[in-house]
Structures are given as C-alpha cells and as structure tokens.
C-alpha cells in the first residue's frame, strides 16, 4: 500500500479545561472517501480545522502529504479544498466572481481560473446563475458553489465539514450526487457528518467519534456487521408499557436497546421475532422491521443516539 495522504497520531486538542479531541489516530489513503461520524460536540470539526491547517494542536502528530500543517500552513493549504460548515461565500460578489477571486487567493493565473470557472459552473449546475450575487442563491445552490469554490485549485484533498446540514432532502440528494461524482473521479474526500445515511452513502471508510475519542473504525458495512445484527425490529407499546414489557422482550432477542419512545430488538430475522412476540400475546401498537444501520452501531458503542 502506498503512503497515506493524511496521517494522524495521538492528536489531542485542549481548550482551557475542555478536551475537544483526545488522542485520536487515523490514516487516509489517496482516492479514499473517509468520514468522521459522530454527534455535535464529538470533536469532528476541531479535527477538521487542524487538518485544514487553520488550528493548532495541543499534542500528537499530523502529516498531510508528508508535511506538518502547523509548520507549513500555506503550502499544506495549497493542497486542500475547504468546504466549511457555515456558508462563507463572499456576499458582495457574484457567483463567478466568488470562484475567480478564490482562485486568485491561491495565486492561480487569471486565464487558468477563467477556463476552470466554466467547468465548475457546469459541475455545480449554476450556469444560469453565473452573474447573480450569492445572497440571492438558495441554500443548496450556495453549498454547491462552496464545493465548486473549493475545487478551483484542483486540490489533492477535499475537506467537507457537515456538507448537507441545513439542506432540504432534495438539495441533499443533488449534493450527494455531485460528491459521488468527485469520488468517482478519484478526488480524496474527508467529511464530517452526524447523518448516518450520509456516511453510508459517501464513505468508503469511517471512524465513529464520541466525546473527542474514536470508538470504532471500518467500512460502513463492516461496522454494521461487527457491532450490530442483520436486522432490527422496532416496537412501540406506548410510553408507559414500553418499560413493563422490556424485561420479557429482552429474553427473545440477541440484544435490546430501550429508547424513550420505542424498543429496538436486534436479531437476524425480524419477521420471525415479530411472530414470536405475537405468539406471546404481546401486541405492540406499531412495529417496523428494518436493516441495521450506522445509527445502531453508534447506539451500541455509546448508549446514545446520533441526533438527540
């Protein structure tokens, strides 16, 4: 295997008496799509800022293309495309001006950028908005432009912090499609998310983070296989009865999680389990059989749900 593009060892970041990132390790290989999955406050964004060479670390080592971002900030940043969590497009400029001036920040020749802009407008599906001021764009358009902007410099690595947070479902799907294209073109993607469906769709490999630490690492499917059963049966008996029937139900499956509003029963065959429950004359008000997801992995690892 060739040398990883990103190599992180024992990375720790302390703010005052709060440890945001606590000794994490991971590598990202060229062409890989790598995710940091975890709830808000898990330390994902802090880790991203350190990778982006815009934040210092308290201890540990970080190498991006063999360089320490703390010592070679501008050079490391020349390799990176950044898509931050908040929209930070230049509100005083139009769509094309935003792409143009961003390329100039990298010192790219005007001719190069002008040719690149055409390509990026097509990629971001913003050809018709080229001379519109960015304030007039919808949330989804702004996010696509931010990604296009991050690509002006033809980065080796694209860093995306919560790329679809705050977007409606349709805009999310368009964005996923665009990111999937980049992945197919071989762009190395590193993204943070607290949406397990996003992580499943986009990541070849991911780490599950909680309270500044990495809880598990693997491919989405690998993690599900390792930490969860094939299927999940979700049953509701109403908030009072859930607790009552829980001890009896937990005997019937491999593992059970009790959430405030429902019970999650982990099993290889959900339908069969549901029949057993019916046979025991317990009648849930609603029931649902589904495949295990990263949400279940997170619940197993931390005892909490991703979005609280």
């Amino acid at each position: 295997m060739s040398k990883p593009l990103i190599s992180v060892r024992g990375l720790t970041k302390v703010f005052g008496d709060f440890t945001a990132v606590n000794g994490i390790n991971f590598d990202v290989a060229k062409g890989e799509s790598f995710g940091l999955l975890g709830p808000n406050g898990a330390g994902k964004s802090t880790t991203m800022r350190i990778l982006a060479a815009t934040s210092t670390r308290t201890s540990g080592t970080v190498e991006i293309l063999d360089k320490d971002p703390e010592k070679f900030g501008p050079l490391v940043r020349a390799h990176l495309g950044i898509v931050p969590q908040e929209d930070n497009l230049d509100g005083e400029l139009t769509v094309t001006e935003n792409l143009f001036i961003y390329g100039r920040y990298f010192g790219l020749p005007k001719k190069f950028i002008k040719a690149k802009i055409e390509e990026l407008l097509e990629f971001a599906q913003l050809e018709e908005k080229r001379d519109v001021k960015v304030q007039a764009l919808s949330g989804g358009m702004k996010r696509r432009l931010t990604i296009a902007r991050g690509l002006v410099s033809e980065p080796d690595i694209l860093l995306l912090d919560e790329p679809t947070t705050g977007l409606d479902p349709q805009a999310r799907h368009i964005l996923w499609d665009r990111l999937f294209r980049l992945k197919e073109q071989g762009v190395t993607l590193v993204l943070t998310t607290h949406f397990m469906d996003e992580a499943e769709q986009l990541c070849d490999r991911l780490v599950v983070m909680d309270k500044g630490a990495i809880m598990a690492e693997g491919s989405p499917q690998g993690l599900i296989k390792q930490y969860s059963s094939k299927e999940v049966l979700e049953v509701r008996f109403g908030s009072d009865r859930n607790k009552e029937v829980a001890p009896q139900l937990s005997q019937m499956c491999e593992r059970m999680e009790t959430l405030p509003d429902r019970l999650l029963m982990y099993t290889e065959d959900g339908e069969k389990l549901l029949e057993q429950i019916a046979a025991a004359k317990l009648h849930p008000t609603t029931s649902l059989v589904r495949r295990s997801s990263l949400e279940d992995v997170f619940l197993r690892l931390t005892g909490r749900t991703l979005i609280e």
């Binding site: 010592k71 070679f72 900030g73 501008p74 050079l75 940043r77 020349a78 390799h79 100039r104 920040y105 990298f106 010192g107 790219l108 020749p109 190069f112 410099s153 033809e154 980065p155 080796d156």
Partner: peptide, 21 residues
Amino acid sequence: MSAAVEVAEKKKSSAMYAGRP
C-alpha cells in the same frame, strides 16, 4: 502537481506571508 501547489512551492512563503497582498 496542481497549479496551486506549484505556485505555493515556487514562492518562499512563510506562515505569515504568501507574497500576494
């Protein structure tokens, strides 16, 4: 190597100054 990296490696930029005010 991308054009952006070429620019960055050619210039003797420090952490404070890239030479492009």
